[in-house]
Nucleic acid binder design. Structure first.
Lengths: 145, 145
DNA sequence: TAATAGATGAAAATCATTTTCAATTAGGCT
DNA sequence: AGCCTAATTGAAAATGATTTTCATCTATTA
């Protein structure tokens, strides 16, 4: 997702692309891990000084509502964010280093249909995450940075 | 999960089965919905007066670590709990009334193996939840109680 | 029944998140 | 290029959730 696409999407929703938001998007894009608001704030302070934690919260809200980020639930808890690739996908989270790998072929349609038939629920969406250890963390003892 | 089984499991871990914990387990067992600590506290206050919110937090921690409860992530956010039936299972959450239905045949083994092969991750566990509307909420407009 | 490790409740402390508000700025429009 | 306006920002305060502390109490085991 390039800068132009992001700018266009924000504009379409009446949001502005400020330097602070750019910086936040950059930090998230350059990290392989899922980051909490506090993580992002910490990474920003070392470079872009002057940015406020409140701004990070507000930017995350805007970016998530615009479909540019997604949340990770498993592992450390909630409220941690990732850059979102286009389309439906799921996460594979490493509990050693926190790295997140995406995969998209979840093939839950059959299961969804079966569950729908059994329960009568109309299913809107699903949450699927795997938790494990990445190859590097299986080998050595890398800790979360 | 009967009272005796619960008592035994707590004992095995060095925890005690107090009247407060009994009451908390009872509230959770009798609800079809997932309950936050504050929800549980509110339900308890109307009957078992004198119980503290702190005790609810501590009891939830103990019960979850003993495998008697599980968390629900989708929907209202995190930190809401359910009674746990034995064994591996997943949740189907109604976004109308908050009701949670379990299902156990997730059949993710194939997918797990494929993801393992592609990424080299060793997968420990997964999180799978469906969000939708239950039959009653599709018909009428029942709101969360 | 006594001993004791674990549990409780109230208050205070901590941590995360949201609100308020005055000042600033991005983006659209001349 | 410069103006307008609605959106955004940062600091501080407010709120809300969760944890810690500590003195007291109690469930369990001997």
């Amino acid at each position: 997702m390039t800068g132009k696409v992001i700018a266009a999407e924000l504009k379409r929703r009446g949001f502005k692309l400020t330097p602070q938001r750019r910086a936040i998007i950059e930090v998230i894009s350059h990290s392989q891990e899922h980051l909490t608001p506090a993580d992002i704030y910490a990474k920003l302070k070392s470079k872009h000084s002057g940015i406020g934690l409140v701004t990070v919260y507000r930017a995350l809200d805007v970016l998530e509502r615009s479909g540019m980020l997604c949340e990770v639930h498993i592992g450390d808890g909630c409220r941690s964010y990732l850059k979102r690739p286009g389309g439906h996908h799921h996460h594979l989270v490493c509990k050693g280093c926190g790295k997140v790998v995406d995969f998209s072929d979840c093939e839950l349609d059959d299961l969804e249909q079966r569950v729908t038939k059994e329960t009568g629920f109309r299913i809107d969406r699903h949450l699927l995450e795997f938790l494990g250890r990445c190859p590097q963390c299986q080998a050595g003892r890398r800790e979360k940075s």
